[in-house]
Computed example of a mutant assay.
Amino acid sequence: MDVCDQAFLIIDGEPDPVDIDCSTGYTIVSNSTVNLLPGAHISETVGGGVGTGILTVNYGADNIINIFGGQIDTMLNTGSTDTVTIYGSDFAVDGVLLDPSQDQIVNTGAGTYIFDLTGVYEDGSLIDLPCYLEADGVINLNIQQTAPEIEVLPALLEWDFGDVEVGQIAIVLVQIFNYGTADLNVSSVTIAGDADFTITDGPATPLVIAPNTSIGVDFEITYAPATEAPAAAVVTIVSDDEDESIIDVALSGVGIVIVVPPTQQIQDILDYFDASVIDGTLVGYGPGNSASKRLKALRNMIESASDLINASAYAQAIDQLESIAKKTDGVSKPQDFVVGGAAAVLNTMINDLIADLAS
């Protein structure tokens, strides 16, 4: 073996026996299990009978030889009482491709069957094994099936958005992976159900997902409730996965309306007023000193409305707020007390509060 101190070779459960000598070889007499892993390089013989190889397994002595990868320079030599299994696919004998259903090579003759076995190991590396198969010897072919294997997240194939305020949105990603050994062909990804659910981002279909990719293909699903009510929908994924050609992801959510109490609304108006004055988006309107006086007067009017609301004097509060609204509506008569980018937002907040108090 090229590298004697690395775990490319497992003998009876132990990686690279400590007493192996790369110059003289290591001989297994009988009743042992040998696993060759990807990266192994055997300079001479696996099996027995020919050469003074780095690894010699005495063939015909009830040994188990599992070949998962690696290279054997001289031969794989085995007899009728050994159990030899090679893990891979696309096997060929002397260049002739074997039927995928063939899972053994058997020497039914009296002499030694000598041939070259080629193929592909499970890790994708190439198989190229010179074989000496003694009379009645058998090589088992553990054929790796080539097929896509779909995996979809969310893992439980359902997603509950929970309570989402009307006018707001919530997003989840539906991710498609291919953990198989062949391309996964996704023919369609569709959504059906309440119109509050939509596919808002994702690649066009049909699409192909390469095998063994750790990065999924993402489809963004958005829930935007328009009414105060429960809603449901189903995302359907259609592919050429053999046993899961159609996968449904169930979606659910509840649209809610959050009622902000009037006391909080008027406080929000005061906070917005102060913040807008500080950042310069709300300024007093009028000639000379009248601009600053009108700005202060408007805030005093809002504070007065706040006192009335806190006292539950809603009718009087509405009268006060309507007067404030007329001084922030951008209409020339009566003249506004404030101008700036924040004035229109402030006016909307005031009118919303009036509507809530009147309802």
Rank of each mutant, 00 (worst) to 15 (best):
D5Y: 14
D12T: 03
D16P: 09
C22A: 12
T24Y: 05
S30G: 12
S32K: 10
V34Q: 03
V34A: 08
L37W: 02
G39V: 04
A40F: 01
I42G: 04
V46P: 03
G49A: 04
G49S: 06
T52A: 15
G53P: 00
T56I: 10
T56V: 11
N58G: 13
Y59F: 15
G60E: 11
A61D: 14
D62Y: 12
N63V: 07
I64S: 10
I65N: 02
G69Q: 04
G69C: 09
G69L: 04
D73N: 15
I86T: 07
F91Y: 06
A92M: 06
V93I: 15
L98W: 01
P100Y: 07
S101Q: 14
D103Q: 14
Q104W: 08
I105T: 07
N107H: 06
N107W: 00
Y113I: 06
Y121L: 10
E122N: 14
D123L: 03
L126M: 15
D128T: 12
D128F: 13
L133W: 06
E134P: 04
I139N: 01
I139F: 05
N140K: 12
L141A: 05
N142R: 12
Q144F: 07
Q145P: 03
P148A: 02
E151V: 15
L153K: 11
A155G: 07
L157C: 02
L157K: 07
G162I: 00
G162A: 05
V164C: 02
E165G: 07
E165R: 09
I169G: 00
V172T: 07
L173F: 11
V174L: 05
Q175K: 12
Q175M: 14
Y179S: 14
Y179T: 13
T181M: 02
L184K: 10
L184R: 08
S187C: 04
I191E: 00
P203R: 09
I209K: 00
N212I: 13
T213S: 12
I215M: 07
V217S: 06
V217G: 01
T222V: 01
Y223N: 00
A229K: 01
A232K: 05
A232I: 01
V234F: 01
V235L: 03
V235T: 02
V235F: 01
T236W: 00
D240S: 06
D241A: 06
D241L: 09
D248A: 12
A250L: 09
G253W: 00
T263Q: 14
D271A: 13
Y272F: 15
Y272E: 10
F273T: 05
F273G: 03
D274F: 10
S276Y: 00
D279S: 03
G280I: 08
G288D: 12
N289Q: 11
A291W: 01
K293Y: 13
K296Y: 15
N300L: 15
S306K: 14
N310C: 03
A311Q: 11
A313G: 06
Q316I: 11
I318A: 08
A325H: 04
V331R: 11
S332N: 12
K333Q: 13
D336Y: 05
V338T: 04
V339M: 11
G340L: 05
G341Y: 10
G341W: 04
N347L: 01
D352I: 06
L357S: 03
L357K: 02
